[in-house]
Write a protein that binds this DNA or RNA. Structure first.
Lengths: 124, 124
DNA sequence: GGTCGTAATATACGACAGGGAATAACCATT
DNA sequence: AATGGTTATTCCCTGTCGTATATTACGACC
């Protein structure tokens, strides 16, 4: 009942399986920096607000704000500064620590991609 | 309102953050082999039944059975064989492919641990 | 000083993964 | 043929997570 009896078809030399994964940095209260949080940081940098980043990433403002709070709480210096009122109603921006965090994570994630690709050879 | 102002405390040379992650093998229908599935396979090997493995891992039989089905469906040859009735009411056992899957995944997971440890140095 | 769009916060709603229970089928052993 | 523990399968229920919605506070700019 499982059909397909292999058929000795040797197309796809290293084909059927691929290795996937999540990787993230943990701080005092759990998740601190992951791919989603980094995307949020980039969204904030490019839109100038938490609201704009949330819309771009199709997540609720509430969640975006919670993530920003979580990151700021767990870092000795905040990654995002936000201000209310004023020109445009307020906004948010990355700090230098925020930029550095993005950079470090992206390098790690790239290395992770290479790692997965290499390890996938274990499952031909 | 975020307190703590860093304090220039340089104990914990590479301390605050650690890198964590999940890694798994994907097949045709999604997840094929992960740490939980491997633990289940080992539980089956050691208890001789899906029921026993589920109890040991404190998961419902339903879930355990679904995981076994998923693995068997996505492998050219099943990782687990099960039989009903007979001595002891039936049972389950690993195939040779099942043993090899455990082996391959554990090696990969070990390499993953080393990778995370190495990459954590990016976040001092 | 009114305006505007954002930050910040609370509440209610909905989706869904997983758990638990219940049931039927199975078959060597006794 | 009765037993017993397991596989296989279905149905319901609940906790959790995130979304959506609503409200208030804010302050530079016109």
């Amino acid at each position: 009942m499982r059909g397909a009896k292999s058929k000795t078809k040797k197309a796809c030399p290293e084909g059927g399986y691929r290795v996937r994964g999540h990787i993230w940095v943990e701080g005092a209260e759990g998740a601190f920096l992951g791919i989603g949080r980094v995307a949020l940081l980039e969204g904030i940098r490019e839109t100038g607000s938490i609201t704009g980043a949330a819309k771009r990433l199709k997540m609720s403002y509430r969640r975006a704000w919670e993530l920003v709070e979580s990151m700021n709480r767990q870092s000795p210096e905040p990654l995002v500064t936000a201000s209310t009122g004023g020109k445009g109603g307020g906004g948010a921006a990355l700090t230098d620590a925020g930029e550095k965090a993005i950079e470090a994570f992206k390098r790690m994630d790239e290395a992770f991609g290479k790692f997965r690709e290499k390890e996938a050879k274990r499952f031909p």
